[in-house]
Nucleic acid binder design. Structure first.
Lengths: 249, 249
DNA sequence: TCCTATTGACTTGTCAGACAACTAATTTAT
DNA sequence: ATAAATTAGTTGTCTGACAAGTCAATAGGA
């Protein structure tokens, strides 16, 4: 048994993924990519592996491949990975566009989940009461509230003690930093609601004004729901968008 | 030169794609997929091609692959392809869940685009006036309005004469049926607005109530914007959701 | 008996090299 | 000049093989 190095072992696939991503951001929309065989050699990887990775970027809409012609950077992506299809914390989103966020009204408590919360966590109804950690807070920029976030996490995955003084308000970032549980995807429902008295007060908006509500189940790599989060956004501060592919017939 | 058959030539990739899709819907979440080599032989295709297609489904979150273990149907997809990441017309969406839709207040006109519309179509400002076709209508179910749709299409791609008596209200479906232009993706902005007097009247909702607004650029295969559409949805009739992948660090 | 290695079968991940299919520009023939 | 044929370059697909990971069964030691 050799002494394990502390550098993470990254599979060829992962290496190529980040390399391609860097190549894309370094190029302008419409630019040509090096031909497959050449790029594969350059990255020290087989063409098959390279093709699998390129295919993923095509699927995401970042690259366009044309049979017999070439591979090109898509001309319709202003900034890579800024859409809703990638799950990132509000903090890192704000950081990318150079915003300083503040956290207000933080509230952390442990209790049993309400039926609605249990449903959001995918627990079959009628089961024993599920103990959860509730993290509630308001995100503000320059003193102006822009979002109200509530995370519901089964105690199995996170306890009150795990939140140290440095807690910046993002359960997602916490999980990613601990790398346990390992996260994979999130299923996010998109809704609109009118501000109730409670939210009107917390977000400093008129009663009954329109809010964007996102409800998200966070899935671990082994397909467990590790968190259910509900967010309310004040319009105008974030630009959410989604790349949708057309269902060919 | 042989006489061309009227059956569309489908590449191995496309054939495998539909085959896999059928396999997924025929299975239950968590079910095991046949091992790669076996499935490849069964579909009459090489394992490399199969892997590329499977990778696309993994990227979409419909399948999960585990090194050394197997490939499984994702347990987090209730119905395949019902999320926002796939662009389908309201009609086909409604049809899938067994709803009969009606079209009301249809309005079709040709004029030049307003600056805002031109911007939505990606035309550089200050250019010559862009002639467009405007298609406006309300979608209703059982007499109850659920959405207000407006499509803005440059006359280059669609003229008033192209809309026959059978026009069902969906520009998307029309383009798909004509298969010209060939569509690829759509970039959709997600917003919330309060109903103005105009929309309150058209959608029969209280003035100032919350509406979900989607603004979408429709891209052709050669990356031209062929339509800009703005939709207003009355809450509660559609469940929009998005699968978001977690950005690993 | 119980616990711990080891083995082996199975599956996905990666590799190498080759050829087919397609596109666009160039060249040739009419 | 126009149209057809050629050619170079690129993506699409195929074949067969081996590496790497997982898991259960088995053998060995306490």
């Amino acid at each position: 048994m050799t002494i394990a190095s502390h550098t993470k072992i990254r599979s060829p696939r992962q290496q190529v993924e980040t390399a391609i991503e860097e190549m894309i951001v370094a190029r302008s929309p419409g630019d040509r990519f090096p031909p497959g065989p050449e790029l594969a050699k350059q990255l020290g990887v087989s063409r098959a592996t390279l093709r699998e990775v390129l295919g993923a970027f095509v699927e995401r809409g970042a690259l366009v491949r044309r049979h017999g012609v070439g591979t090109f950077v898509s001309s319709r992506i202003p900034v890579l990975e800024s859409g809703l299809e990638v799950l990132e914390s509000i903090d890192s989103l704000a950081q990318q566009i150079g915003l300083e966020t503040e956290m207000a009204d933080l509230e952390v408590l442990e209790r049993t989940a309400t039926p609605l919360e249990a449903q959001g966590l995918g627990t079959p109804a009628g089961k024993a009461a599920l103990p959860v950690l509730i993290v509630n807070r308001v995100i503000a920029v320059a003193g102006e509230p822009i979002a109200d976030l509530r995370d519901i996490v089964p105690l199995k995955y996170l306890r009150k003690e795990d939140l140290d003084q440095e807690f910046r308000g993002s359960i997602l970032d916490l999980f990613l930093a601990r790398s346990s549980p390992i996260l994979s995807t999130s299923r996010t429902q998109i809704m609109v609601v009118s501000a109730t008295a409670k939210f009107a007060q917390r977000l400093k908006v008129p009663l009954g004004s329109a809010l964007l509500k996102l409800g998200a189940q966070l899935y671990s790599y082994d397909e467990e729901i590790v968190a259910y989060s509900v967010s309310y956004f004040v319009p105008g501060h974030f630009n959410f968008h989604v790349m949708r592919r057309v269902k060919q017939i």
